[in-house]
Design a protein around this nucleic acid. Structure first.
Lengths: 201, 201
DNA sequence: GTTGTATGAATGAATG
DNA sequence: CATTCATTCATACAAC
């Protein structure tokens, strides 16, 4: 998709200074990353254009974002995810002894959070129910169990001892949605052909 | 179908230097971009095949390039510029207040013209003069004032504070120029590797 | 302040 | 022409 257009990029997330001639690049907020990660892991790795707009609107609750940013994010996510996997495969073939040795593996392993109603720490992954999605190549099954935890950097929860900013978990009662908790605010992300944002408004 | 014939794609981009990163894909030189940008901006947004060949020969003065590269360049340019504009309009409709706020739009917007010996500051465009537009959908007249300044990246003149980004219609005062003729549209491009702005400061 | 790296942005190269 | 992938450039941020 070539949605890279700098559409609604009116005001990125810059410092509060009233002057900002700097064209800084978009730096996604932790909440935004969480949402994006959740969507990606829910199986929608290549959202069609209209979904991109929806996702952008969702993300805008936490900071200025443009459609192009969302588009780029998914593009890069897909690309890098695939490349990592390919590289992993290659290295495994090259040297079978090197099994299970990611360079920065268990970053999130230390949490043991039990603070939010959702409970789980970062368990957004679930099985895409293979709904006949509208477009062609969005919903990829995304077997591969991608790097669920490669987001440690910007996520901010590196060592959240007391207040986990947000969590994301599958709701047991309703198998059709993924629930994202952010500071106690719950949003539900349908697993199906993404129909985000009903909860947030 | 389309005329993307990979005709002379035999040896487009070779690195004559003994040690280079060994690029696989064509990396247009600044001068080449200038020429392409000039042609595109002159109204020829979809050159027919024979023109593509001529353009390629022109570009070859500054580095190896194949017809396919030229073809792809125009195709991508068309596509991306159109969508950019479409999105711009969409975002304007969404929030009229956000007028004129593309993320990196006016990098050179401070049009301090009449500063360089050449004169104009991106005056390659001329009247197409209705030369026999052989093919079907070339020469789109409107072109709607595309993003003239979206080339900042590879052009190298990242941020000229006061000097105009470049000119391409320098007269015969300087022997270090080459003349670009496209359907009667003449453009002159300074020779030499990357010092396009050498003439300006 | 320098370096290393993760990642946003851009674009060449396809494919349909 | 619409979309997508692969590669590269540029930068924000962290570690030193």
């Amino acid at each position: 998709m070539d949605d890279r257009n700098q559409d609604s990029y009116g005001g990125p997330n810059l410092q509060r200074s009233t002057l900002e001639p700097l064209r800084t690049r978009w730096t996604p907020k932790p909440e935004q990353i969480l949402i994006l990660e959740s969507i990606f892991n829910s199986g929608m790795v290549n959202p069609p254009k209209d979904e991109t707009v929806r996702i952008r609107k969702l993300l805008e609750q936490f900071g200025s974002v443009g459609d192009a940013n969302v588009f780029y994010w998914f593009q890069n996510r897909r690309s890098r995810s695939r490349r990592r996997q390919r590289q992993l495969q290659a290295s495994l073939m090259a040297d079978p002894r090197a099994a299970g040795a990611a360079q920065h593996a268990g970053a999130a392993a230390t949490s043991s959070s039990s603070n939010s109603p959702g409970g789980g720490f970062f368990a957004c992954a679930s099985s895409p129910s293979a709904a006949a999605s509208s477009s062609s190549s969005d919903f990829v099954i995304d077997d591969s169990a991608d790097d669920l935890f490669s987001i440690s950097r910007q996520m901010g929860f590196v060592e959240a001892t007391q207040t986990p900013p947000f969590t994301c978990s599958s709701d047991a009662s309703n198998a059709e949605t993924i629930t994202v908790f952010i500071d106690g605010v719950a949003s539900e992300v349908p697993k199906g052909p993404i129909d985000l944002r009903a909860a947030f408004g």
